[in-house]
Amino acid sequence: MRCVDVTRELSAPTGDRQSSALAQHLAACPQCAAWAARDMKLNQLWDATRPVEPSTEVWNEVWTEISARLDRPDVLPFREAPTIRPGRRILMITLGVAQAAAILLAVFFFTRAPGGPQPDATVHQPVRPVDGAPPSSVAQSDSDPLDIDPDGSLVVLRIEAPGKVEKTEVALNDNSGRVDSGFEMLNFLESAAKQ
């Protein structure tokens, strides 16, 4: 047994402290024996300086303070954490994905339906000038046409008065924060899946 193994075993015992090899080494190695003696002294010093535990009165005061703090709603909500069984979790995820798929299909068929918006047929169709107004790229048709703004937003064009065209942005959700539509869609699908 090496000296380093002896001091290591004395410092953080693995259960071999009583082994004969350790005892033999300590008997034969004055250096390790001195180390062991100092280690024992350290243990005695530790024992001699054990903290005096606070009195019951002190602890009662501490508990009173703790109890008062626990009464504050911001400290202790005491809410039961919702527990979701694995089977129910899978069911919820499946329903979420199905919901998202249904919405995607609905959007797809709506945009392809004969009565639905036909961007290719209406966008960029010249508008007949009214009262000498210059031609515009705004379509004039029975159904409100769709256009794409320079910033990429999908808009509905509505002619309010001759020469006056109102643009209404199409958004799946309230998008007043001007969030990217693709991101908004992903967000929506994610939240649908979580529900």
Binding site: T7, R8, L10, S11, A12, T14, R38, K41, L42, L45
Partner: peptide, 25 residues
């Protein structure tokens, strides 16, 4: 890591404390 720290701590404490000078505990 716990065992290494314990070993290190005992060696260091021995070097910081003049344990031989403390006779009565």
């Amino acid at each position: 890591t716990v065992m290494s720290r314990l070993s290190y701590a005992r060696h260091k404490l021995q070097s910081y404390l003049d344990l031989d000078a403390i006779d009565e505990l």
